[in-house]
């Protein structure tokens, strides 16, 4: 066998901006699968209730929100049962938050992998974002149960729009996850800042309240939060609530900018991960 038949690797200093190697990521798709597979296996080992946690978490939040915001504060739920109203937003919100925090956690927990073996590091935030999909599916089944309980008939929009909206949620989670996880490698402060950011983000997103409560002059600023569009989209598809508070163009611009800059930033930080972690 001659040399030119063998795969040739050139190792040289990486300076300046490093291009994103999509082919390489594709070549490592099996590893991505194994990362997700392991994450799901590990998630509920040594827990008494195991996979039940996937159901309990959002369900419990829904109950709490329904009691405090629905009953006590009497927040408007657009004429629908408040549990349905808030659960339809919790679905994408949990998917998003889990995705972001698992991306960050991967980089923290698997420092040894980063130091000892090569693979495109973007596999880690990708696995972090994709692995909560299982939880999402289970939560969604619960949602169908809720619909049945409240005798609410879903529209056929679900079939086309729901997968698309899930995809958009994943994109948003990946965009944020890339930024957070890359920063986190260098500045461990992120670990302490993250809970605050997530909490602020939660209240800046219409999970417990309706966008109709907001003055229309806030529209543009409010839409800078990409989760607004996602949640409005979910409510529209699942519950048929029309949103007049949502701008597609801003959503695309914001997520596009965060995602592309996040990819570039992550790629830039990636080469030195092994030296810093």
């Amino acid at each position: 066998m001659k040399n030119f038949l063998l795969q040739k690797t050139i190792i040289k200093p990486l300076s300046g901006w490093v291009p994103i190697n999509l082919k390489e990521i594709w070549d490592y798709r099996e590893l991505l699968y194994f990362f997700i597979w392991r994450e799901i296996k590990l998630r509920y080992k040594q827990t008494a209730l195991g996979i039940l946690w996937v159901i309990i978490q959002p369900f419990f939040l829904m109950v709490v929100f329904s009691l405090f915001f629905g009953r006590l504060t009497k927040l408007s739920s657009e004429g629908l049962p408040y549990p349905l109203f808030t659960y339809s937003a919790l679905l994408p919100w949990m998917l998003f938050v889990e995705g972001v925090s698992r991306s960050v956690n991967f980089m923290l927990q698997e420092t040894n992998l980063i130091k000892k073996v090569y693979f495109p590091r973007i596999i880690m935030p990708l696995a972090g974002v994709l692995s909560p999909l299982i939880d999402f599916l289970i939560s969604f089944v619960i949602f169908l149960g809720l619909m049945f309980y409240f005798k609410f008939t879903p529209s056929f929009k679900i079939i086309i729009w729901l997968p698309l909206l899930v995809f958009f949620t994943l994109l948003t989670a990946l965009a944020s996850g890339l930024w957070f996880s890359a920063i986190n490698v260098q500045y461990r402060d992120m670990r302490y800042v993250m809970p605050f950011i997530i909490q602020l983000w939660f209240f800046a997103s219409p999970v417990v309240y309706s966008t109709n409560l907001l003055p229309s002059s806030w529209k543009i600023i409010y839409n800078l939060n990409p989760m607004v569009g996602i949640i409005e989209g979910f409510r529209w598809v699942l519950l048929g609530i029309e949103s007049n508070y949502f701008c597609w163009d801003i959503w695309i611009a914001v997520v596009g900018i965060i995602l592309i800059s996040g990819l570039l930033f992550f790629r830039q930080m990636e080469k030195n991960f092994a030296d810093i972690v």
């Binding site: 040399n3 063998l6 795969q7 040739k8 690797t9 050139i10 190792i11 040289k12 200093p13 990486l14 040894n112 992998l113 980063i114 130091k115 000892k116 073996v117 090569y118 080469k271 030195n272 092994a274 030296d275």
Partner: peptide, 28 residues
């Protein structure tokens, strides 16, 4: 460096063939 875990600061290396690294016992 040869395992591509960290980039070199200067110089280069050419590797012909598929590589595997065993830098630690029980990676992963």
């Amino acid at each position: 460096i040869l395992s591509r875990i960290t980039p070199p600061t200067e110089g280069y290396a050419e590797i012909y063939g598929k590589t595997a690294s065993l830098l630690e016992i029980g990676t992963g």
